[in-house]
């Protein structure tokens, strides 16, 4: 796996949102949505960002597509720094990278038929003859499992799962190399969730896609990803191969997070690490390690210094002072 070429290289990404206040709407502070995030995504791999709401995982996903401008940091896609690109080259670049949204109800324009929805990205990025377009549409509908007879229907005539298939088709019709899937199954029922996850995995295999998969559902993440990064308050606190992280979590937050997954069997005995309190506000993050005020292992240094990520096992990074030498 590790021999695969690096497709996305994100270095020290930082995204702040200004907080406007007062009568003249001047900036009174910043929401530190993404504080300092570095990761790589290799070809044909699924990298997941997992974390609780407000940890910055969605913002990260949108920033690396430059849908949100980063405050600092480098985003290197296929050897090119995306932040250096002007508007037009970025627009052209977009067909290589697509986004699948969480909510299949609001992310499709209700006034467009499925055919129009699918034609739109083609018209934006390519100049195709009607026959070529038809061919592309035929190919994608087959790939994602939309009945071609339903092409003239409107989004509201479909169920949630079908609509998510349409959004996926719309994202993949330009044949991108890379897809950000932002909570693509969170709004769906369990039995439909499984269908969409299988579809995403099939498409990955057939189209040689790389995914950045963003989710708060730890079971789903475990299932779909090769590598995973656990985010807390704008930073990746632990990152590694999925099974390494799930079976041997080292960061106290990861340990607590994994122990909070509800048990799957009423007879299972489960020890839970209790986390007190709530996630602090990203507008006013604590000094030092972001997790220190909820951590059971908190030491003096934790409230003063931000821990560096260290490679404790091959490919398994942890940012925690417990592992300082």
């Amino acid at each position: 796996m590790s021999e695969q070429k690096v497709l996305f290289d994100v270095q020290h990404l930082q995204t702040y949102f200004p907080i406007l206040g007062g009568v003249v709407r001047k900036t009174v502070g910043y929401v530190h949505a993404v504080e300092d995030v570095s990761f790589q995504i290799r070809e044909k791999e699924t990298f997941s960002l997992v974390g609780e709401s407000g940890c910055g995982k969605s913002t990260t996903g949108r920033t690396i597509l430059r849908l949100i401008e980063p405050t600092k940091g480098k985003i290197i896609f296929d050897g090119q720094d995306l932040c250096q690109l002007d508007k037009e080259s970025m627009r052209k670049m977009r067909r290589n990278m697509q986004l699948v949204f969480q909510d299949p109800y609001s992310s499709l324009n209700p006034r467009m038929t499925v055919r129009k929805l699918l034609e739109e990205p083609l018209d934006t990025h390519f100049k195709l003859t009607p026959a070529e377009k038809e061919e592309q549409i035929k190919w994608i509908t087959e790939a994602v499992g939309i009945n071609p007879e339903h092409l003239e229907r409107y989004p509201h005539q479909f169920s949630g799962g079908q609509r998510q298939r349409i959004s996926i088709a719309r994202a993949l019709i330009t044949k991108p190399k890379f897809v950000v899937a932002d909570e693509p199954v969170s709004a769906l029922d369990v039995s439909i969730q499984a269908q969409i996850l299988n579809l995403l995995m099939d498409l990955q295999k057939n189209m040689e896609l790389s995914y950045l998969f963003i989710s708060h559902d730890l079971n789903v993440v475990r299932h779909i990803s090769n590598r995973v990064g656990v985010m807390y308050l704008g930073r990746i606190v632990e990152m590694g191969n999925t099974e390494d992280v799930y079976q041997n979590p080292m960061h106290p937050y990861t340990q607590a997070l994994l122990s909070a997954i509800p048990k799957r069997d009423p007879l299972e005995e489960k020890k839970r690490i209790r986390l007190e309190g709530d996630v602090p506000s990203p507008a006013n993050p604590p000094k030092g390690c972001a997790f220190h005020d909820r951590c059971v292992h908190c030491m003096g240094i934790c409230s003063e210094q931000v821990p560096e990520a260290r490679e404790l096992e091959p490919g398994h990074f942890v940012a925690c002072h417990l592992f300082d030498k």
Binding site: V190, S191, N198, N219, E243, R264
Partner: peptide
């Protein structure tokens, strides 16, 4: 059974998930 299987097969890294075909 289908519900349980589609949940419990989750996590078996990258294997095909059990699904109930069709929709509600």
């Amino acid at each position: 059974e289908g519900l349980l299987r589609s949940v419990t097969s989750l996590g078996n890294a990258k294997k095909e998930l059990y699904t109930i075909k069709g929709m509600v």
